[in-house]
Structure formats: C-alpha cells, structure tokens
Simulated assay, not measured.
Amino acid sequence: MKSLLFRLAGTFSAEIGSELYLKLKEETRSPSLFCLDFSEVEEVTEVGWEFIRKISERCQETGSKVAGFGLKNSVAEENSQLLSLYPAESDCIHFLESQIVSETPANELTPKSEEKTVHCPECQTLLRWKLAGDYLCPNCKIKFFVNKKGWVSTYERLV
C-alpha cells in the first residue's frame, strides 16, 4: 500500500483543491494512505471544503484512507465529518497506520528465503531491500523511502 504526505500552503481554495483532487484521483487506482499537512494553510474556503468532500468520497470508493493535521482555524461541524483531523503529524500517521488491516504490507512479498522486496511506487519494478531508508529505482530513477514495515513513501510536494 502506497502512502503519501502532501504539504499544503496558502489558501486552500479551488486551485489547490482541484490540483490535489486530480493527484489523489490518479494515485487511488490502488488503495493508498494520504496524509494532508495543513500547518501552513491560512484558510480553507467553501470551495476548498467541497474538494475535501470529493477527496474523502474518492478515498472511500477505492479503499484508500485520508486524514489531515495542523489546521489552525476552527472547523464547522458539517466539515469536521469530512476528514479526520489531528493536531500533530504523528497522530495523523498513527491513525492512518491503524487503518491498515494486515500486518504485512500489501506491496511486500516474503519469499521463503526471507528476502524483502517492494514494488517501485512509480513503475512497479520489483526491488530488493534490507534496511529502512531512502532508495532509488534503477529503472525510472524515482527516489522513495521504505520504512521498517516495508511501506513505501514517495517524495512529493504540492506548492
């Protein structure tokens, strides 16, 4: 299962909302975890909340999970039910990891030789790994991180 962290900034309105929705729509072809960092967001407009609703619905349809943290402004009652919001990044990540049903990551294969493998998040090339850390796919040259459990996170930023 792929996990992505999106760091957002400025006013979350139609422009950022539509860009984020299109990116998540592309990434939800398979179930994924999405963590939204609102710590640098000054305001979420009414249209922005509409995109958050669309993002939430898309994630429910595809089996993906989405949560956010760091929203400074108070949230209206009807909007607070659209997205699980947490005060800190660690709380948000803990919630998302708790939503995973299986102990074994979906993208990790465990052959009898105990060799650990993951699929590249971009080109799906099967890659071997030993320790948690940064890796570079030799096929498509994308840089990604593999944690101790074998979860793959790509490095992306929406500006």
Rank of each mutant, 00 (worst) to 15 (best):
A67S: 15
F12P: 01
L136E: 13
I93T: 12
R58I: 02
E27R: 04
S32N: 10
E97D: 12
E103N: 11
P111W: 00
D134N: 09
P87A: 10
T110H: 08
K130L: 09
F51G: 01
L33E: 02
L131D: 15
G48I: 04
E50R: 13
P111R: 02
L127I: 15
N107D: 11
E103W: 03
V75Y: 10
I55A: 01
T125E: 14
L8S: 04
P138V: 03
G10Q: 05
L8C: 08
G10A: 04
C92E: 10
S13Y: 11
E103H: 06
P111T: 08
A106D: 11
L71Q: 08
I55P: 00
Y86G: 06
K65D: 05
L22V: 01
K25Q: 12
L5D: 05
T45R: 01
H94A: 14
K65P: 00
R128V: 12
S56A: 14
E103K: 06
F95P: 03
P105Y: 01
Y135P: 11
L126C: 11
P31N: 03
E46C: 02
N107A: 04
S74P: 03
E97P: 00
F145C: 04
L4G: 02
E122P: 01
L22A: 13
E43W: 10
S102W: 06
T62Q: 11
S74I: 08
F95S: 03
E57M: 08
K141H: 14
T45N: 03
I55V: 15
P138W: 06
C123Q: 09
P138Y: 06
E122V: 12
A106H: 05
V66D: 06
Y135T: 11
L24A: 03
S113D: 15
S32Q: 12
A67R: 03
G10R: 07
P105D: 03
E27K: 12
K25C: 06
Y21M: 05
T125W: 04
L33M: 14
G68M: 11
T28P: 00
E122K: 08
L83D: 08
F34V: 10
S39W: 02
R53C: 00
D37K: 05
Y135G: 03
E114N: 13
S80W: 08
P87W: 02
E115T: 15
S74K: 14
E108G: 01
R53D: 11
I93D: 07
R58F: 02
A9W: 04
L127E: 10
Y135N: 06
I93C: 00
I93N: 03
V44K: 03
K23T: 13
A106K: 12
S102F: 11
E19K: 13
Y21L: 14
L5P: 00
T117H: 10
P111F: 09
A132W: 05
L4T: 14
V47P: 01
Y135Q: 05
G63A: 07
L131F: 09
S90M: 13
Y86W: 13
F6G: 00
C123A: 05
E114S: 09
L22K: 14
E19D: 08
C59Q: 02
P105F: 02
I93M: 14
R128E: 12
L5S: 11
P87M: 02
T125F: 05
E114A: 09
F38A: 05
E42W: 00
D37M: 06
T11R: 04
N79I: 02
